[in-house]
Computed example of a mutant assay.
Amino acid sequence: MNSIEAVLEVPSSLRYRLLVPEGTVKSIVYVLHGYGQLVEYFHLKFNGVHSDDTLFVFPEGRHRFYLKGTSGRVGASWMTREWREEDIRLNVLSLDLLHREIVQKYPAEKITVLGFSQGGATAARWVAFGKVPCDHLISWASVYPPDLTTEAHATVAKKCTFVLGTEDEYFPVSEQDALLAAYQSMGIHTVRFEGKHDIHEETLKSIL
């Protein structure tokens, strides 16, 4: 008996949430959440950053799971190490389709892509391989994807800002200076704030 792996293409969907300004949209900010988060709650962190002309778009990772055991709170993620190439491809494809839909209704002058934590790598890959005309990439407390080609890296790094809290529990304090120096040597602008692994409202306002 032979074991054969096969693939079947099936229709899928991408859930997202919007923070819509009162005035005419001049700027769009796509925000990609971190591991185990849902946009239903994650978007609330940006209520205080909302402006009169900026549309915030929060897509949700397609992988949803129970955060503990087999019941209770649910979170979402962008990918795992299993069949990662396919997850990367589908993430880029679905985000491209989302962008096409958004700009048909909200044409804008400026596009920003912000990736928080796990969402940062997905954001960088989307900017590198997708069709979004990104003016500014914000990689917030995230690991810059090491698998970008030299050409893709050149495109992404020059428009990227890396943001990190001084007390971020996922980035040991003893290693932060070396990490920031490495990013700076790649041409990436870096910003630090006093805080932990979270969105810092005043810092985000100043960057945007």
Rank of each mutant, 00 (worst) to 15 (best):
M186L: 13
A141R: 00
Y66V: 12
S51V: 06
P21C: 08
V127N: 10
A121W: 07
Y16D: 02
I28Y: 03
G48M: 09
G119E: 03
L137G: 08
G165I: 05
V132I: 14
V92K: 01
E86W: 08
V92S: 03
E9Q: 14
V74M: 12
S3I: 15
Y30T: 03
M1K: 11
E167P: 00
A108F: 05
E201C: 03
I111K: 02
V49E: 11
I4G: 02
H33Y: 06
E175K: 15
I199W: 03
V29I: 14
Y35A: 07
E9T: 13
K105M: 09
L38V: 13
R73P: 00
I102P: 04
F46L: 10
A181E: 15
K131H: 02
V92Q: 06
E151N: 03
A154N: 06
K105I: 13
M186I: 00
A154F: 05
Y66M: 08
E201K: 08
D52I: 10
V74Q: 12
R73Q: 14
E101S: 12
K105F: 07
K68A: 13
L97N: 06
W126D: 09
L95C: 04
E85L: 02
P146Q: 13
H50V: 09
D87L: 11
D96V: 09
K159F: 12
V49D: 10
H43L: 14
L14E: 11
F116D: 01
P172W: 04
K131L: 10
E85R: 07
S206W: 04
T161H: 01
M79K: 02
P133E: 08
V113Y: 05
L19K: 14
G195W: 09
I207N: 07
V39L: 03
D147Q: 09
V29D: 02
H197W: 11
V127G: 09
P59V: 15
F42P: 06
D87C: 07
E201H: 08
M186F: 12
S51Y: 06
F116S: 01
L204R: 01
V57L: 08
G119H: 04
V163S: 02
H63E: 13
K110M: 02
P146F: 10
E167K: 04
L19E: 11
V143E: 12
Y35C: 01
G195A: 05
A141E: 14
